[in-house]
Simulated scan of single mutants.
Amino acid sequence: QYTHKYNTVTRYRNEDKRQQYNFYRTRQWSHLRQQVLERDHYLCAYCKAQGIITPAKTVDHIVPIEFDEALKANVDNLAVICSKCHRLKTDWEQVTYGTGQGNE
């Protein structure tokens, strides 16, 4: 039920968000994601930069789509990220870029 509420109320709260997240359902995203996972050997790029090896399966936009949509399909703007780093990065993006809930 939480996932349903998140997807129908929070994630798709307006048309821009709906279009933004539809990108993640495309074949293009699927190919880009796989390319980045293989390039980064399924290891978190942020942990690796600190000398820590952490397996991960999430591919993240370094510069968020909300900030610069032109970079959404740029493989150089994508990195593998673990859940811990992703939470920290999301919090940082909200402060730095004004992305996420509130979307200032």
Rank of each mutant, 00 (worst) to 15 (best):
H61F: 07
N74K: 09
K5S: 09
Y46G: 00
E104M: 02
C47N: 06
T99K: 03
L78P: 02
N74M: 00
L43V: 15
V59C: 03
P55H: 11
G98T: 06
P64I: 09
W92S: 14
R11G: 02
Q34K: 14
Y24E: 10
Q35N: 12
N7M: 01
V63Q: 04
R11S: 04
K5E: 09
G102W: 03
F67K: 15
K57C: 06
G100N: 07
D76H: 13
T10H: 06
A45C: 13
D60S: 04
E104A: 10
T8F: 02
I81Q: 12
N22P: 02
V80K: 02
N74D: 15
T99E: 03
E15Y: 10
V63A: 01
V9N: 04
T58E: 12
A45R: 14
D91P: 00
E93H: 09
F23W: 10
Y6S: 02
C85H: 10
T10K: 09
Q28R: 15
T3D: 10
Q28K: 15
L71I: 05
Q28C: 02
N7V: 00
C85R: 03
L78Q: 04
V59R: 02
A70K: 13
V95W: 11
E104S: 13
E38R: 10
V95S: 12
Y2L: 07
K17I: 01
L37D: 03
Q35C: 08
L88A: 13
H4D: 11
G102S: 07
K89V: 05
V75G: 01
N103F: 10
S30F: 05
Q28A: 11
H31I: 12
W29S: 01
Q20L: 14
D76A: 12
D76K: 13
N7P: 00
N74E: 14
T3E: 11
R13F: 08
T3Q: 13
C47H: 07
Q1N: 12
E15R: 13
P64R: 05
R11I: 00
D76Y: 06
I62H: 01
W92Q: 11
Q101Y: 12
T54S: 12
K72Q: 15
Y42G: 08
T54W: 00
Q50A: 13
V95C: 07
K48C: 00
H61L: 09
Y46R: 02
W29C: 00
H86V: 06
Q101G: 04
H86D: 15
D40W: 06
